Amino acid sequence: MELRQLQYFVKVANKEHVTQAAEELHVAQSAVSRQIHQLEEEIGVSLFMQKGRNLQLTPVGQMFCKRIENILKDIDKAVLEVHEFLDPEKGEIRIGFPHSLGIHLIPSIVAEFRKKYPNVRFRFKQGMYPSLIRDVISAEVDLAFVSPFPEKNDQVAGEVVLTEELFAILPPNHPLANEESIRLEQLKDDKFVMFSSGYSLRPIVWQACLEAGFTPKIAFEGEETDAIRGLVAAGMGVSLLPEIALFQTNPLQPARVRISEPRITRTIGLIHRADDKLPQVAQSFRTFLLEYFGLDRNTPVGS
Rank of each mutant, 00 (worst) to 15 (best):
Y8R: 10
Y8T: 00
V12A: 09
V12Q: 04
A13K: 02
K15L: 12
V18K: 03
V18I: 15
Q20T: 11
A21T: 03
E23M: 10
E23I: 09
L25I: 02
L25M: 09
Q29W: 03
S30H: 09
A31K: 10
V32A: 07
S33G: 05
S33D: 02
R34L: 12
E41L: 05
S46K: 10
F48S: 04
F48L: 02
F48A: 02
M49I: 08
K51N: 13
G52Q: 06
N54Y: 06
P59G: 13
V60I: 15
G61K: 04
Q62F: 03
Q62R: 13
M63W: 00
M63H: 07
C65Y: 01
K66I: 03
I68K: 04
N70R: 04
L72V: 08
D76L: 08
K77G: 09
E81F: 01
V82R: 12
V82D: 08
E84A: 11
F85L: 07
P88S: 15
K90S: 12
K90N: 11
G91P: 02
G91F: 04
E92R: 12
G96E: 06
H99F: 13
L101C: 09
L101V: 11
G102V: 07
H104F: 05
L105P: 06
L105T: 15
P107S: 12
V110R: 06
A111C: 07
E112V: 07
K115R: 10
Q126R: 08
Q126Y: 00
M128D: 14
P130Q: 01
S131W: 01
D135I: 00
V136D: 02
V136I: 10
E140A: 08
L143V: 03
A144F: 00
F145S: 04
K152D: 12
G158S: 05
V160G: 01
E165Q: 00
E165C: 01
L166H: 07
L166K: 00
L170F: 09
P172M: 02
N173F: 02
N173G: 03
H174D: 05
H174F: 03
L176Q: 12
A177T: 10
A177V: 01
N178H: 13
E179V: 04
S181C: 12
L184H: 05
F192M: 15
M194G: 09
S197Q: 14
G198S: 08
S200R: 04
R202M: 15
V205R: 03
W206L: 15
W206N: 14
C209M: 15
C209Y: 13
L210P: 08
L210T: 12
F214Q: 13
T215Q: 14
A219I: 14
F220Q: 15
E223H: 13
T225H: 14
T225F: 11
D226L: 13
I228E: 14
I228K: 11
L231R: 08
G237F: 11
V238D: 14
V238C: 13
L240E: 10
L241H: 05
L241D: 08
E243M: 09
N250E: 10
L252C: 09
L252R: 15
A255N: 06
R263V: 15
I264A: 14
R266F: 03
I271C: 13
R273C: 14
R273E: 13
D275E: 05
K277D: 15
P279A: 10
Q280M: 01
F285M: 11
L290T: 09
L290I: 09
E291Y: 07
G294S: 06
N298V: 06
P300M: 14
G302F: 11
